[in-house]
């Protein structure tokens, strides 16, 4: 059994070495780097905007601001229960009929922010809610105003609680950018699809695709794992 497995894996490696066109890979690597740059670029803008939208919505829902709070709630349900792909289709192919013409980039950023905003909101709001009532009350008791309680008591505690969730969201949003090719953005998926279509270099294109995403996402994954462990440690230590 073990021997069989050995031969088997040997065969696969042999096949891999013979079948994979390294010259081709060398040629197309710059394309992948460029595409990865574009993916990261769009993801970064989307993440920053999601952060802003998420924080704003979280505060609105946390303070239960009249009128705005239910509207925010509706947005969050809408965003959480629809796929980004469909959101993009709607933005890119349907809106021009209403006279709203968005470029592919605009669609991607709006779509990613629409999606990411609700995920960030969820993370931030639940982090805010982990700060207990008694903490807020003791802030009030030493004469802090509502804003000061938020600034000095609630936020610092909520921030550290929200870091693992935030990292998970960042990873999720970078992954979600993989559908951007549907609106003709030349991202990693687009390049891979192109190479498969043009040269039939399926293996090479797919390996490079997987490796690219791995390089993009592994650091985020490691950071988020680290953050989570640290948080757990910190919580065991506190009151």
């Amino acid at each position: 059994m073990a021997a069989l497995f050995y031969i088997d894996s040997f065969l696969i490696i042999d096949y891999f070495l013979r079948a994979v066109d390294f010259e081709f890979i060398k040629q197309v690597i710059p394309l992948y780097i460029e595409a990865a740059g574009l993916t990261l670029h769009l993801a970064l803008i989307g993440i920053i905007l999601s952060f802003a939208v998420g924080l704003l919505c979280a505060l609105i829902r946390y303070y239960k601001v009249p009128v705005l709070s239910p509207i925010t709630g509706f947005y969050i349900e809408l965003s959480r229960n629809t796929p980004l792909l469909i959101q993009l289709f709607f933005l890119y192919f349907a809106l021009p009929n209403l006279g709203i013409k968005l470029s592919s980039f605009q669609c991607c950023i709006i779509g990613l922010t629409f999606l990411g905003g609700s995920y960030m909101e969820e993370t931030f709001r639940s982090a805010l809610e982990t700060v207990s009532r008694v903490q807020i009350e003791s802030g009030q008791c030493i004469g802090l105003s509502g804003l000061q309680v938020m600034r000095y008591v609630v936020l610092p505690q909520a921030v550290s609680v929200s870091i693992p969730g935030f990292c998970a969201n960042v990873m999720f949003l970078i992954k979600e950018t993989s559908v951007f090719s549907i609106v003709a953005v030349a991202d990693l998926m687009y390049v891979a699809k192109d190479l498969i279509g043009l040269y039939y270099k399926t293996d090479e294109a797919l390996w490079l695709l997987a490796v690219s995403y791995f390089i993009l996402l592994l650091p985020v994954s490691i950071i988020s794992g680290y953050a989570e462990r640290r948080l757990r440690y910190a919580q065991f230590g506190s009151n």
Binding site: V134, Q135, E137, S138, G139, Q140, C141, I142, G143, L144, S145, G146, Q148, Y152, V153, P156, Q157, S160, S238, N239
Partner: peptide
């Protein structure tokens, strides 16, 4: 109200120190 509260000190049943601050910062905040 937050101005009034400065004249009334209160201590709760549950230990309510701010966990992200050291003792001195806890005391200095107010």
């Amino acid at each position: 109200m937050h101005l009034i509260r400065q004249k009334v000190g209160m201590v709760f049943q549950s230990y309510d120190l701010f966990p992200h601050m050291n003792v001195l910062d806890n005391i200095l905040l107010g």
